[in-house]
């Protein structure tokens, strides 16, 4: 590929280069993440947005090396964090980073918490795995962290079991567990998807506040563009296991380049007055193809209104649109095509 690559982050905390994570299945090899390159700078919030099957969650699991065999990260992929390649390092180096320098929270706090231990003991356990310390000191750290995530009466709540807590409090406990070692990077995969909207607003506010006070970077993975708009500083849009667009958040929302990003932004129901004229939502025809059979050329071509021959045969590289904005779309090379769209790609099915 000869086209210009996007400018890499100047001083990345985490640097992913050409990540390929594959899963053998009955229907063939699913190339869930297929050549992903991105960097996370210290202190920033990088949002990864994508639909189901885009590879966003597999990216998170790959960084933490939680890919279960027969799934694997292919040779040639690198995930550099503080001088260590997480894709290839030994188990001991991985343990020194995972849970300590990189914290993680997932969508469903109930499945991530152990039901037979109190939440205080589970947080204290994280401390004792990573540090030589007394039980008492670890417990004290756990209680302090529960207070930091704004759980009232934290000393008493530390003695409770996960089932005794509400969904929002459980997600706060997950945050406390992820942050008790003061990691430099927090990976949050759909952290508010299972929560009510009023509780989601609480957790997002808390996350922003903790990020400030702890000075950590956040890699936020979500399907929800409104969450990206609310908290991310930079955005990577994933489709078909690849980054298809990358830009600062305001630029992405104001001037998206990739037709997929444009379509997603148009499809989001915007808060509006009921029954006002433009009641019909913009659709993207079709659906995300399976990871076992990505289309040739551009992976979005059969859903794209602009697609022409080149898109069907030649995979677009990530074209640099500006110093901070990149798009995996041949329209960057042939912008005149945007003004003459082909007829839409056909009916939904």
């Amino acid at each position: 590929m000869t086209a210009p690559q996007p400018v890499p982050a100047p001083n990345p905390l985490l640097s992913i280069r050409d990540l390929r994570t594959v899963f053998p299945t009955g229907a063939g090899v699913a190339r869930a993440v297929d050549g992903l390159t991105l960097g996370v700078e210290p202190g920033e919030t990088l949002g990864i947005v994508g639909e189901s099957g885009s590879g966003k969650s597999v990216t998170a699991l790959s960084i933490l090396r939680l890919i279960r065999p027969p799934g694997r990260i292919e040779a040639g992929s690198s995930i550099t964090f503080g001088g260590t390649d997480l894709a290839t390092c030994d188990a001991e180096s991985l343990r020194a980073i995972r849970g300590r320098r990189i914290g993680m929270v997932f969508q469903e706090p109930m499945t991530a918490l152990n039901p037979v231990f109190t939440v205080g003991s589970q947080i204290a356990e994280v401390v004792r795995v990573h540090e030589r310390t007394t039980r008492q000191a670890a417990w004290g750290r756990a209680v302090a962290m529960l207070e930091a995530v704004r759980i009232p009466a934290s000393a008493e709540r530390a003695h409770q079991y996960p089932h005794e807590l509400s969904g929002g409090t459980r997600q706060r406990v997950m945050l406390a567990m992820a942050l008790v070692m003061h990691p430099a990077l927090l990976i949050a995969d759909e952290p508010t998807t299972a929560l009510d909207v009023t509780v989601q607003a609480q957790i997002l506010a808390l996350l922003a506040e903790l990020q400030q006070s702890l000075g950590m970077a956040v890699l936020l993975i979500t399907h929800d563009l409104a969450i990206i708009a609310a908290v991310a500083s930079r955005v990577v849009v994933m489709y078909g296991g690849q980054a298809v667009e990358e830009a600062p958040v305001t630029e992405l929302f104001a001037a998206a380049h990739h037709p997929y990003t444009e379509g997603l932004l148009r499809a989001v129901p915007r808060p509006r007055l009921p029954n006002s004229p433009a009641a019909r939502l913009a659709e993207i025809p079709g659906s995300v193809p399976p990871a076992t059979a990505w289309p040739a050329g551009c992976r979005f071509h059969d859903r794209c209104a602009f697609a022409w021959d080149r898109c069907r045969h030649e995979m677009p590289p990530l074209y640099a649109i500006s110093a901070t904005h990149a798009s995996r779309c041949h329209l960057a090379a042939e912008p005149a095509r945007r003004t003459a769209p082909a007829p839409t790609a056909g009916t939904p099915s």
């Binding site: 989601q200 929800d224 409104a226 708009a229 609310a230 991310a232 305001t250 929302f253 989001v268 808060p271």
Partner: peptide, 8 residues
């Protein structure tokens, strides 16, 4: 609590 899909 409804988030607006607009960073502005």
């Amino acid at each position: 609590a409804v988030l607006s899909p607009d960073p502005a």
